[in-house]
Design a protein around this nucleic acid. Structure first.
Length: 107
DNA sequence: GTGCTGACCGGAA
DNA sequence: CTTCCGGCCAGCA
């Protein structure tokens, strides 16, 4: 799988995230790990930082529900508008967590 | 080749 | 709740 295809796969998956739900960088990396052959949460962050424009990047947060550094204000506003359960500046990923296969991740 | 850094993760203190 | 540490993969000096 070429880097471009990997980027496309990541963006595609991010676009497939339903409104009001969120996915962690690690979850995305893990979901594409089998298809891409590699697995690195850091790489997802790098891709989002470069090609994050054009996709609902605000639905992508850290596994702790933390918003992407430098974009916390943007993300928080958008998530709030979509009805994502927030606890302070953190997303209740246990409630809004989403996966391409099973709806709830922790189940 | 080596070494540092990064929109990360999980565990320990 | 916070901070530190080791591991992870890829890009760049």
């Amino acid at each position: 799988m070429t880097p471009e295809e990997y980027v496309e796969a990541v963006l595609s998956l991010v676009e497939s995230i339903p409104e009001g739900r969120v996915m962690s960088y690690g979850a995305i990396a893990d979901a594409l790990a089998e298809r891409s052959g590699r697995n690195s949460p850091r790489q997802i962050g790098g891709i989002m930082a470069r090609h994050g424009g054009g996709v609902p990047w605000h639905r992508v947060v850290t596994s702790a529900g933390r918003l992407p550094p430098g974009h916390e204000r943007e993300a928080r506003a958008r998530l709030l508008a979509e009805g994502v359960p927030l606890r302070g500046d953190r997303v209740r990923i246990d409630e809004a967590g989403w996966a391409p296969d099973g709806d709830r991740t922790g189940e």
